[in-house]
Each structure stands twice: as C-alpha cells, then as structure tokens.
C-alpha cells in the first residue's frame, strides 16, 4: 500500500449531554462509505476527551454533533485545547442544532464548517475529502 491510498482519518462524536446520535451515526457511515477511517467515540464526550483521542488517533479532523445548546462553549474549548497541544492543524467541524446567529462567531474562532440540519451527506463528505492531508 502506498501513501496515495492512505485514508483520511476523522474523529466523529458527540460532546455534551444530549443523546441525539442518529445524525452523527449517519455521517459516520457516509464517511466510511466514501473511504474515510472514522474513529467513532460515541456519546457524552468532554472536550478534553475529544482532543486526547484526536491526538492519539492522529486524525485529520474532528467532527462534533451538538444538540444541547452548549455549542458556543464546547467548540471554542476544543479549539483551545488543540492549541495547547500544538495540534491546531486538526480541523474542527460540526453539526446539530446551531442557530444561524452563532455560526459566524464560531467560524471566527476557527471552526472550519458547520452543517445545519438538512445538509446533504455529499456536502459533508466533499468537505472532509477536501481537507488538506
């Protein structure tokens, strides 16, 4: 096997307290079907856990689903921890219930993409496949 066939690795999981995992599982499966290695963490992760796992798994990106309303604190915390670990090259994206007013400020803190409900899977897959390796 050569470098050219090396799959992209992406951590997919849920941070915070809500248990709505149907969407995130669909995303995980769509990414798998497009050739991505998905490290699936499951529910109720803390930002600290997510960042530790991302580093141990050497992922290209972290995709987080949040339906609890805590996105304005959870995303910045993940980005801050990545910085602490000198791992800012790991891209962070997300989905779930994120009011449009919050999207701009979150993108400014360094979130790469936010996919609202109704986003087509192909858009998410395209984003992930387009990440620099």
């Amino acid at each position: 096997m050569t470098t050219a066939t090396t799959p992209i690795r992406v951590l997919i999981g849920k941070v915070g307290l809500d248990g709505h995992d149907r969407g995130v599982k669909l995303v995980a499966r769509a990414l798998r079907d497009s050739g991505v290695e998905v490290i699936y963490t499951g529910l109720h992760q803390t930002p600290e856990q997510v960042v530790n796992i991302a580093i141990q798994e050497d992922v290209n990106a972290i995709g987080l689903s949040i339906h609890s309303g805590a996105h304005t604190s959870l995303f910045p915390r993940v980005l801050e921890l990545l910085k602490t670990h000198h791992a800012e090259d790991i891209a962070v994206f997300g989905g779930g219930i994120i009011p449009s007013d919050d999207v701009g400020p979150l993108m400014e803190t360094g979130v790469r993409a936010l996919f609202p409900p109704g986003t087509s899977m192909s858009r998410i897959v395209e984003f992930v496949k387009g990440l620099p390796r």
């Binding site: 066939t5 799959p7 995980a28 499966r29 990414l31 798998r32 079907d33 497009s34 050739g35 991505v36 290695e37 998905v38 490290i39 699936y40 963490t41 499951g42 796992i53 798994e57």
Partner: peptide, 9 residues
Amino acid sequence: TGGAILGDR
C-alpha cells in the same frame, strides 16, 4: 471503499 468505522475505544 477502504473506509472503516473504528469503534473499539
């Protein structure tokens, strides 16, 4: 596809 769900952890 070469993809995988790695979920052991």
